[in-house]
Design a protein around this nucleic acid. Structure first.
Lengths: 199, 199
DNA sequence: GATTTAGGTTAACAGTGTTAACTGATTTAA
DNA sequence: TTAAATCAGTTAACACTGTTAACCTAAATC
């Protein structure tokens, strides 16, 4: 993270908090600079432009997410339990660190189309872990999955949908937040386990 | 939709196409106006501000989504089949009309926090249909769900995750798009059906 | 001691959303 | 028939935005 420069780090921290507290639209280079007690153009000494600044924030968050999941799931020996641990950890990260999670998906640097691939794959370790866990579960005949790569992506997508509906406050007011998360996780998991035909 | 005003409709149409083709960030009132052959301020005759314009677009799309799902699912008699039809229709709408679907979730009028509730519930007919379908399936003992309201929301969220990962082009290049969608839908559905214990 | 470099600055450009004040035509009322 | 009101748009201006170019100054290097 910190590349030996305090101002650079400070800019990132201020950006992150402003992004979370005041939203994407009102985040401006000038405001960030003012809060850092520095002129607006100084930011350009450390970041090529606004998109690169935002992209750096995204990368940091993706890295944090990967580390969080690895810490919770890597020690788990049984592959089905590890599978569940990964899914739970994903949701827990989103709910616990919304300001980090939201940056991953909510922020849209418009130039993102230009440079996503390598940088994005970089911190995809958690995803790779999920793929391998699914592969192991399939081998042991404990999971009903055609293609682990596809299944992992699907789970990732489903979990993102679940977490983001909660974070965006779009949840129906009649619905209890914790119940929604737990139920959803349970159904996502059930969707991939071996099942016997219904009679 | 059209409230008897051609310029208003034209502004909406131009906005929608610009939004989809050039992205959210580069959408400006002045550009919209120029394309409509009118001065920028004329837009304010029909829309309170930019957020209201965007919000109108969202409402239109949500209404379209509801109609699309109803058309596909309402005629289906069997509740489990109707359940599947709703889910398939959701995905089909997203893939078929990305410019409409993306507006629903991608656009973020920052003032949205202020006036979402009534307006948002208005066109939630498809969601209500899903809730009722789940309720019916539970009654007939064909579905394993604690709270239909929660389950419906969860499915909505999961499907959004799946559709949006496809539309954003974030799908791993090794993964086939159609396979991903079909597999994902299948797993989402499986996650809610009655299951026998694994032997 | 002179020169390069690091880490900033100010001034300016082109573009943004939005408001206020205005114009001119068309409809309405007396 | 004429006066008033309303409609549908305009221009000018404000305060803000990202970004660049040119400049400054103190420290490090030769």
């Amino acid at each position: 993270m910190s590349e030996e420069n305090p101002l650079r780090d400070q800019i990132l921290e201020i950006s992150r908090s402003m992004l979370f507290n005041e939203g994407y639209k009102s985040l401006s280079m000038r405001k960030i600079a003012k809060k850092a007690g520095v002129s607006a153009t100084s930011i350009y000494l450390y970041f090529e432009n606004k998109d690169h600044l935002l992209h750096t924030l995204i990368e940091e968050s993706v890295e944090d997410l990967s580390r969080f999941i690895e810490k919770k799931a890597l020690p788990v020996g049984n592959c089905i339990d590890r599978f569940k641990a990964i899914i739970h950890a994903y949701a827990e990260f989103g709910i616990t660190y919304p300001e980090k999670y939201e940056i991953i998906y909510k922020v849209r640097p418009d130039s993102m189309a230009r440079y996503p691939k390598e940088k994005f794959r970089k911190a995809r370790r958690a995803y790779e872990l999920l793929v391998k866990t699914i592969e192991e579960s399939v081998e042991k005949n404990q999971m009903d999955v055609d293609d682990p790569l596809v299944a992992a992506y699907s789970i990732w997508a489903q979990m993102h949908g679940i977490v983001s509906v909660v974070l965006n406050g779009r949840l129906d007011s009649r619905i209890n937040r914790e119940q929604f998360i737990d139920d959803s996780i349970e159904h996502v998991i059930q969707g991939f386990l071996i099942r016997a035909a219904v009679t």
